[in-house]
């Protein structure tokens, strides 16, 4: 019983130390140093918030670069992966269908040009990035839909490639939302 009373008291003490003090220190730090001041960082277009910088969103129109398939339909309050196993036949058929559909929208491509990232679902269902290769294969479609020259679109894509961390570690990537916002700034279709 003595132990039980000590347990209650020490738990309250830990609540004050961790759930209150530790949390408040981090919260205060976030107010000054967090890119979103404690909230998710946002991206704006013409002064209007159009998305969270680190959270992917669905792009289906031809005038935009597309992100990866999502098992969560890009619902940012219920993240999810597909959890499909590598030998699941139904899943492989689904990927097959995504390849076909990607080729229909990009008739100038061959099968071997379709990047795997564009036909596989991400872990979170909210992946904000694609690889540079994923963007390059979409350039022609986007340029035609917008009536821009392919060179101009390609220059934009090149500008948006994010190098590996310190140039040494990790992957090269492009933030799809930021790329599309840059497109809109160069060639506005929304007001």
């Amino acid at each position: 019983m003595k132990n039980f009373i000590k347990s209650i008291r020490i738990t309250i003490a830990f609540c004050i130390l961790f759930s209150v003090c530790y949390v408040l220190i981090l919260w205060a730090f976030g107010q000054f140093f967090g890119p979103g001041k404690g909230n998710a960082e946002t991206v704006t277009l013409n002064g209007k918030v159009v998305g969270a910088a680190n959270v992917g969103q669905a792009f289906t129109k031809d005038i935009y670069f597309w992100g990866r398939p999502s098992a969560a339909d890009y619902k940012a309050d219920s993240s999810a992966g597909s959890n499909k196993g590598p030998t699941n036949e139904a899943y492989l058929a689904e990927v097959e269908a995504r390849v076909d559909s990607f080729l229909v929208h990009h008739p100038y491509l061959e099968r071997k040009d379709v990047p795997a990232e564009m036909v596989t679902a991400s872990g979170s269902g909210l992946d904000p990035h694609i690889t540079p290769a994923c963007a390059y294969v979409q350039i022609k479609r986007v340029a035609e839909a917008r009536g821009m020259s392919e060179e101009a679109v390609k220059a934009l894509v090149d500008k948006m490639v994010e190098k590996p961390f310190l140039g040494l570690f990790g992957t090269e990537k492009i933030n799809v939302l930021k790329l599309n916002v840059a497109l809109e700034e160069a060639n506005p279709t929304v007001k």
């Binding site: 990927v95 795997a116 679902a121």
Partner: peptide, 16 residues
């Protein structure tokens, strides 16, 4: 399937 799987098994993984 004959597609370009240059970056490994990306089902369930994140590009970054």
């Amino acid at each position: 399937m004959g597609i370009a799987q240059d970056n490994g098994a990306m089902e369930g993984k994140e590009v970054r």
